[in-house]
Design a protein around this nucleic acid. Structure first.
Lengths: 132, 132
DNA sequence: GAAATTGTATCAAAACATTAATACAATTGG
DNA sequence: CCAATTGTATTAATGTTTTGATACAATTTC
């Protein structure tokens, strides 16, 4: 449980977004489990040499998204339970993300077959990391 | 070839991005074909009640991406020919988009099976629109 | 060749987003 | 109960992006 995250102040991507992304990836990939406690905002801010507000923003946006759960005085944790949105809404979100991928892919002149192959490859890669 | 695009100034998404997105979708979906001419920047700017620079920005970014092709004095056209990036690079781009979808999906607690079903459904939906 | 049409370039203004400084509030631990 | 720990809220400073005004350049049309 050491130096998980690292931020690049010059990447052009806001640091709070970099952190959000890394936390989401860690959760999806099984490096963080429901109930795990994240470092306090000030502590993580120190190790990342970043303003505490930057960490706080990442945490609180992830809480709004139902991925973390914060309790004042106690800490911030990976949340396990029920999704915030109902099935239908989550489905729609994923659909629209996938539609974006399809538009991009076709504009990149990727064929349906190539696309399908990449999809299967990536899905397999993630399934491995998920079945812990 | 009428009122294709419409922009919402209050959506929170910059208008030049909305326009880019709509053009990309039209191209991917077969509403616009290689060689088709787009309206002149000033004309489209009028119909969308937007500054000409806004349209020009969308056009020129899409040109950089190899989707449109502009010629001063003549107009702007949907480009048909070879992709700008080589196979490998395009593959990587699509891969990373798909990885983002997977992370989002798993954080939304969508199961692999559900995800696979949505993928197949959307791919079929687009394939229909593409085989013209 | 001149006027019209079209995309391009430059620069500034306005809007927006990110980061920072600081203070507040709830919980825990002794 | 008091100090320490932790997340939250407010506000300002800074930085970045988007939009707009205007002028320029290439091509077409007559």
């Amino acid at each position: 449980m050491k130096s998980w995250f690292h931020l690049n102040p010059h990447s052009g991507i806001p640091m709070y977004l970099q952190l959000k992304e890394q936390i989401k990836t860690a959760v999806a990939g099984g490096a963080l489990h429901p109930g795990d406690r994240l470092p306090p905002v000030r502590e993580l801010a120190l190790t990342l040499t970043v303003n505490p507000n930057t960490v706080a923003r990442a945490y609180s946006e992830l809480e709004r998204e139902g991925i973390l759960s914060a309790e004042q005085g106690r800490g911030t944790f990976v949340s396990g339970g029920e999704p915030l949105l109902r099935e239908e809404e989550r489905r729609v979100q994923v659909q629209s993300l996938i539609d974006k991928v399809l538009v991009e892919a076709f504009n990149l002149r990727i064929t349906g077959d190539q696309l399908q192959a990449i999809w299967e490859e990536r899905l397999r890669a993630w399934e491995k990391r998920l079945q812990r």
